[in-house]
Nucleic acid binder design. Structure first.
Length: 140
DNA sequence: GCCAACGTTGGC
DNA sequence: GCCAACGTTGGC
């Protein structure tokens, strides 16, 4: 199983909205970046990810699960773009801010820190463990 | 609201 | 195929 991180501006789509969608989840439309898209194409149903609020908060607020593999993005006719569907699994006990990630030695190479503009990122097993620990939850 | 970083586009 | 121009993201 692989781990990921999804960024969203809470103004546009927040964790609360994601939670409100329940088990039907949300199609992760709007990604127009090849790297981010390729990351989604690599996802399998059951993969887990962090849900990160960019701009406002700048913190990891919850855990999501991939519930459909990448398929054409319904928000565009452009065949280049496709996306997965994710559902909220659980909130973190304690949000993990970008600042906290930056000062954590084990997260120095994390894409969140090194590649700020990438909206869908891979997270290594070790990074996953460290962030879950900081978030006060058991790694699932 | 500004701007740095970075990705994409298009002229040559 | 290079690179300048441009657009977007996201931290500050």
């Amino acid at each position: 199983m692989n781990h990921w991180l999804f960024k969203s501006e809470p103004d546009a789509w927040s964790w609360d909205q994601q939670v409100a969608n329940g088990v039907k989840g949300e199609e992760w439309t709007g990604v127009r970046n090849y790297q981010a898209r390729n990351n989604m194409r690599a996802m399998k149903v059951g993969d887990l990810g962090f849900f990160y609020h960019s701009n406002i908060g700048k913190e990891i607020v919850g855990i999501v699960e991939v519930i459909r593999e990448s398929a054409p993005d319904s928000s565009t006719d452009d065949a280049r773009w496709d996306c997965v569907v994710i559902k909220a699994v659980r909130p973190v006990k304690k949000t993990v801010t970008l600042d906290a990630c930056k000062v954590e030695p084990g997260l120095a190479a994390m894409a969140l820190v090194t590649n700020t503009r990438l909206s869908v990122q891979p997270v290594t097993a070790e990074e996953w463990r460290i962030v879950c620990n900081m978030a006060g939850i058991d790694p699932i």
